[in-house]
Amino acid sequence: MASTDAVVRSRRFFARSAGGGLLLLLSGCAGGGPSTLDPAGFGARRVEGFWWLLFWISVAVFVEVMALLVWALVFRRRPDRRVNRSEPIRFVVVAGAGLPIVVLLTVYGIGLRDLAALSRPEAPPATTVEVTGHKWWWEVRYAGVDGATANEIHIPVGEPVLIRLRTVDVLHSFWVPQLMPKTDLIAGKVRETWLHAERPGEYRGQCAEYCGLQHAHMAFLVVARPRAEFDAWLARLGAPARTPDSDAERRGQQAFLQSACVACHTVRGTAATGTVGPDLSTVGDRWSLGAGAVSNDGGHLGGWIANSQTVKPGNAMPPQQVDAAALPDLIAYLQSLR
């Protein structure tokens, strides 16, 4: 694989040499956002290198074309001879066909190579995540672990992880710009991709195939942690949900189990076993509510429960009749689920 490394390195060179305006402009403005130019994973890094190669080639050819254009516009005192005498066909063919052929053959070759590199992980993955797309949230399960979470995918850092993708309704697309290019979720098919985070961190992902009203709010977070931390987290996911230990939480649990929530949500170890909505067993420490619709804090949680339709219009959770008195307890309980 040395040669490929060489390629990758040469790309890095391109990237660095971009030093001038654009690199700063682009990746600089990323500001910790999900920028493809701030890669943290094997797949995204390859494509980033490829991008800078393509970018500089385009700049070169563009400059060439513009130079000719400007030349023609500036020095334009040639005689007015309507009917063609000279026909510089050779120039046209060389510049218009010859040049592109050379350029294109090169990038096409490199492109195929990168495509092959993206298609399969360099080592067999030890962990498999089962991700299911719903309108409009992501259900996340782990092979061999019963227990689920939503809109949040924890992976061990420094090793490839297999992602198996299904959809229960329409097409969605799985995209973590900093880690890996897209994989569409196709109704009636099972798709596979893989993630390989090179450094610990949290990477924003988002559905990239238009899937209806709330396509804009179908984001998720990939959390890459060292193996040990990940294993601990996974163990917790498999275990029953944390039991209430304050009165408020206990009252909240009562309220929860008595209301319609249980029809759609699961809290492991309780009577709540619904599967229409996200598993709430660990909702307390999720990064967001409603797949990126709002941040996960008491205020938003209350708002969401009372009427999620104002927060995320059209989502599949109807407004809930929870009396104001019980709401704080309910919130306390849900937040205690970590």
């Binding site: 995204a44 494509v47 490829f50 393509l54 990038v107 492109g111 290019p181 897209k182 990239a208």
Partner: peptide, 11 residues
């Protein structure tokens, strides 16, 4: 070039 497209498509 497929590899690049898979990263930028639908963006």
């Amino acid at each position: 070039l497929t590899a690049f497209d898979q990263q930028t498509t639908d963006s």
